[in-house]
Each structure stands twice: as structure tokens, then as C-alpha cells.
Amino acid sequence: MLAQRPSPLVHAEPFLPSDREAVYRAIETRRDVRDQFLPDPIPEPVIARLLKAAHAAPSVGFMQPWNFLLVRSEDKRRAVWEAFNRANEEAVTMFEGERRERYRSLKLEGILKAPLSICVTCDPTRGGKVVLGRTHNPRMDVYSTVCAVQNLWLAARAEGIGIGWVSIFHDSDIRPIFGIPDHVEIVAWLCAGYVNELYAEPELSVKGWRQRLPLEELVFEESWGERKP
């Protein structure tokens, strides 16, 4: 008699209330951290858990297009900070009047303060030329990589680790520092480190840059612009 193969399916019962609340707490208290980083190094087992969580993200066609470049070297982080600083000076000129001065007052990165940076990339060639699910939307590989970033971010919150996403730089300034191939897209530069405190609300909200939009204004029913009575 042939041995019965174990089922590839698992039960999908709801989480216990305490587990469910922990998931929602991580989502609701996650913050983009810029200046609250402690100098303490993140232990390797914790980094491994964060990367495992990121690698568990969904991806179109199961192509798993991400890579995670860990950067601890102060010299390389300083080179990235210099790239940020040049781009940030360009960004200042894009705002006018009071908005420009408020922009200048914001702390927008923690590249040198956080003990670890993680450069998350997307390799669009990983699944071959034709990828299931990407046939009609070529950006699905990047969207998948962003899911990995979010997984890492939520896992970090559960570990007491702050994450700051830096996006103000020219790829052409970052790529040669690390030898990143031309076809690989840089999706996120993440600063990571332990924190003792987090803002109760998003920092840009606290500092008056923008406020959270009411959810009911963003939800439509059946047709664009149609809301529940």
C-alpha cells in the first residue's frame, strides 16, 4: 500500500484574540523612524528573523525578486549619506515659501545614526522573460518587493526595532558604491536600529506636514466615487 501523502493545506482558523491584537498593534504603531535610533548593534539572530519575515512576502508568480544588502560599514553609510545630502539640497528647491522652510526643519534620514542599513533591491529577470501574473503589468515585481519591505517593517516593530525608509537620492550615486548591476532596481534604503521611543502618531503628522486622511473618504462602493449612503 502506498503511503498517504500529507496534505499541502493547513487549517485557516482565525488567530486567538491576543495574537490578532498583536498583529494589529504592530500595524498601528509602526513608524518611519529618523532620529530615535540607539547605537546598540542588532544581534544576528534578530536580523535573520527580520529577513526571514521579508522573504515570506507574497510575490507575483512566486518569483521572489528581492535581494537584501546589509550595510554596517561607516564609510559606506557615509557615502550614502553624502548622496542623500546632495539630493536633499535639490529637493529643498522644489518647495516654496513656508513649505520650503518647514522641509528644511525636518529630519529625513538616520543613515549615520542607525547601526544597520538594508538596501532592498528588485531583480526583474529572476522569473525569466514571461512571469505568471506579470504578463500585463510589468511593475508587479516591484510591488512584490515592496510587500517584502512591509513584512520586514512589521517584524521589526514586533522586535522593538525602528525602520526608516530613505528615498531621497539618485540611484546612479548609490549603485557604484556597492556594485549593484544596472538591471537591478533599488527599491528601498532602510535604516534599522533599536529605539526606546516612537511617535504616537506619524512624525510628519506631528510636525504639521500632512495629516491622515479620513478612511471613509477613500472607500468607494461598486463604482468610482460612489459611497455607502
Score class of each variant (00 low, 15 high):
95 F>W: 09
121 T>Q: 05
25 R>M: 08
200 A>Q: 08
68 F>V: 12
59 S>W: 14
42 I>Y: 00
1 M>N: 10
128 G>K: 11
95 F>Q: 07
197 E>V: 07
4 Q>T: 13
104 R>E: 12
130 V>K: 04
123 D>I: 14
173 D>V: 05
77 R>S: 05
91 A>K: 10
143 Y>V: 05
173 D>L: 03
219 V>M: 08
5 R>D: 13
113 K>S: 02
196 N>K: 06
23 V>F: 15
174 I>H: 00
77 R>T: 11
103 Y>P: 09
160 G>L: 05
213 L>M: 13
88 N>H: 07
186 I>L: 10
65 P>W: 03
100 R>E: 07
23 V>W: 15
51 L>A: 02
1 M>Q: 10
87 A>R: 09
126 R>H: 08
159 E>I: 02
184 V>F: 02
26 A>M: 06
115 P>W: 02
160 G>T: 07
204 L>G: 00
152 L>C: 06
59 S>C: 07
102 R>N: 07
12 A>H: 11
9 L>S: 12
182 D>G: 10
223 S>K: 13
186 I>A: 06
127 G>E: 04
55 H>T: 13
105 S>T: 10
74 E>M: 09
208 G>I: 02
180 I>A: 09
225 G>K: 03
94 M>N: 08
173 D>Y: 04
122 C>L: 03
206 V>E: 12
224 W>D: 01
43 P>Y: 05
162 G>I: 01
55 H>A: 14
109 E>V: 01
56 A>P: 12
132 L>M: 14
160 G>P: 04
32 D>T: 06
76 K>L: 09
108 L>G: 08
150 Q>V: 15
142 V>W: 08
162 G>D: 01
103 Y>W: 15
113 K>W: 00
18 S>G: 11
29 T>H: 01
188 A>C: 11
26 A>S: 11
44 E>M: 08
70 L>K: 07
223 S>A: 14
228 K>I: 11
163 I>H: 01
115 P>V: 00
135 T>K: 09
178 F>W: 07
158 A>H: 09
55 H>S: 14
78 R>Q: 11
55 H>N: 15
65 P>G: 05
120 V>W: 03
89 E>K: 11
76 K>C: 02
33 V>F: 00
205 S>E: 09
7 S>K: 12
113 K>C: 02
1 M>T: 12
176 P>Q: 01
50 L>M: 07
207 K>F: 09
83 A>Y: 03
154 L>Y: 10
53 A>S: 09
36 Q>R: 04
199 Y>M: 04
186 I>Q: 01
199 Y>H: 08
207 K>S: 01
131 V>C: 05
18 S>H: 15
54 A>W: 05
85 N>E: 13
218 L>R: 08
19 D>L: 14
197 E>D: 12
64 Q>M: 09
32 D>F: 02
61 G>R: 07
191 C>P: 06
144 S>W: 06
51 L>K: 04
95 F>L: 10
7 S>N: 14
24 Y>H: 14
125 T>A: 11
2 L>C: 12
